[in-house]
């Protein structure tokens, strides 16, 4: 394994029309690292994830993923990059016409060309991994939010991504199902799955993150390991202190 980070973002600039959303984001994620991105809403966290998955065009900057600049990939190249990057959405977005198992099977079978038997076998293993071994035949509307989100995680993992992006994965969940989703994410991170998590769950950031990143107003303000991030050191920026104190009230 090389020392180069798996993902390196430099000077990323993005605007919607005249409104800048990301104003020069710098970020790097090493292999096996789990990063949590926190910050007030409107700070550009979700937009950053969408740019990383090539779902949004950017105006300026570089995104090096596995040593390759993906920021300006063409419409032909983008799908190949996305196969290497799993993404989990706030609203799960399971395919509503397919069972849990078939949601996981679809992309490996149709995109990667895996045989149905092999894709099914792996999908069952992934359902075990997200602690839903008996929900293979359930349809999305028969599952709770937390269960749907865990199937969505398994669906993303089925493509064997090198990086997982989570866009506020527990924000749409009932409080009682948040824990089961965070648990699965933490287990994956501990197994060495490189993860980038946009979240408001500070407890999760404290427990699972190798580093926590604070974004505000379209740029990275501060990044540090959790013990420093949530500590009371002199170098904590005022904005972060204010943000964290708002959350605790």
């Amino acid at each position: 394994m090389s020392d180069a980070p798996l993902l390196e973002v430099a000077g990323l600039y993005k605007s919607y029309g005249a409104v800048p959303v990301l104003r020069g984001v710098d970020l790097h994620v090493g292999r096996g690292e789990c990063l949590c991105i926190v910050g007030p809403s409107g700070s550009g966290k979700s937009t950053l994830l969408r740019c990383l998955n090539v779902l949004e065009p950017i105006e300026n900057g570089r995104i090096l993923f596995e040593g390759r600049d993906i920021a300006r990939s063409t419409r032909r190249e983008a799908p190949e990059i996305r196969r290497r990057i799993g993404m989990v959405f706030q609203n799960f977005e399971l395919f509503r016409h397919l069972s849990a198992l078939d949601n996981i099977v679809l992309a490996p079978q149709r995109v990667k060309g895996e045989s149905l038997a092999r894709a099914r076998e792996r999908a069952r293993a992934l359902l075990d991994k997200v602690h839903l071994p008996d929900k293979a035949d359930a349809f999305p509307d028969e599952l709770s939010g937390g269960q749907q989100q865990r199937v969505a995680i398994a669906r993303a993992l089925a493509m064997d991504p090198a990086l997982m992006l989570y866009d506020e994965p527990t924000s749409a969940l009932d409080p009682e199902t948040v824990g089961e989703v965070l648990q699965v994410m933490q287990e994956l991170a501990e197994e060495g799955m490189t993860s980038l998590v946009v979240t408001h769950e500070m407890g999760f950031a404290r427990r699972a993150a190798d580093r926590v990143v604070f974004m505000d107003d379209g740029s990275v303000v501060f990044a540090a390991p959790p013990e420093t991030f949530f500590g009371r050191g002199a170098d904590i920026p005022d904005r972060l202190t204010r943000f964290l104190s708002h959350l605790s009230h």
Partner: peptide
């Protein structure tokens, strides 16, 4: 749009 985006995120053309 969310369904399309989820499909795109899996690498579908």
């Amino acid at each position: 749009a969310g369904q399309r985006q989820a499909a795109r995120a899996l690498g579908m053309r």
